[in-house]
Design a protein around this nucleic acid. Structure first.
Lengths: 119, 119
DNA sequence: GCGAGCAACATAGTTAACCTAGTTGTCTCG
DNA sequence: CGAGACAACTAGGTTAACTATGTTGCTCGC
């Protein structure tokens, strides 16, 4: 895992999980794989996985329940308060950054790609 | 210094710093004390201070600049025009949709958990 | 059969150490 | 005097170890 993006591993993992959540692979209410599983899956240390989950937790995308697991939060839409503006701006920034990154990946990766290995 | 209010230390520190920012004690553009200073000031370990700053960074309240310091972001004082809010909402929605699409394309066509991985 | 206890597993928090990398001021040498 | 080397700071990332706490399922004894 990790690779070239210039981004730290814990952000890459957070991004990936976030994408899976927003993309529907991880539906609201379902638990993420355990930190140990994620560590193995991404071939990362437990520490970075914990950091990644911490980011999503801070963002409010998931809710960790001690002893049980980390669950995707109900895609409840924000209650529209004054902090919503800040949140929206932050989200826009985040999305823009990720989009730029992905677009770059797409641009630079069309030349060498091996199998579409399912998913 | 982390009195035990039931909240973890790193959240207490993050809350305190956040309050100082929103309260104006830490004006936009000004740097936070260095992590070492904060650690001493709160009588906490460097680790929890780094976590606290990480939270604020994730929230977008501050921006860390390597080698220089952590600066209060030129904030988001809400001009809060309701049309801007609507615009932002629309933009976010649009970005999210496009991003999910692109990311899914990426997921199904690029190096995806194929056991590659550095380390 | 039931319940107490226990083991296994889960997240969460804390700490410490080490490394990278950027910035800035200083000091020395040519 | 100036340029470059250097040291002292800065944040950021990674890893590992330990602790605490909660959940769940199993087993054993009654």
């Amino acid at each position: 895992m990790v690779r070239h993006t210039g981004q730290p591993a814990y952000l890459q993992i957070a991004d990936d999980l976030r994408a899976q959540i927003r993309g529907g692979s991880l539906a609201p209410g379902t638990p993420l794989p355990s930190t140990a599983k994620l560590a193995e899956q991404y071939d990362a240390s437990l520490s970075v996985v914990k950091l990644a989950v911490g980011v999503l937790r801070t963002e409010g995308l998931v809710i960790g329940q001690q002893g049980k697991g980390v669950f995707v939060r109900d895609a409840e839409e924000p209650p529209a308060r004054s902090d919503e503006l800040a949140e929206l701006r932050a989200t826009v920034e985040d999305l823009s950054r990720r989009l730029a990154k992905v677009e770059e990946q797409l641009a630079t990766s069309t030349t060498r790609r091996s199998g579409r290995s399912s998913r």
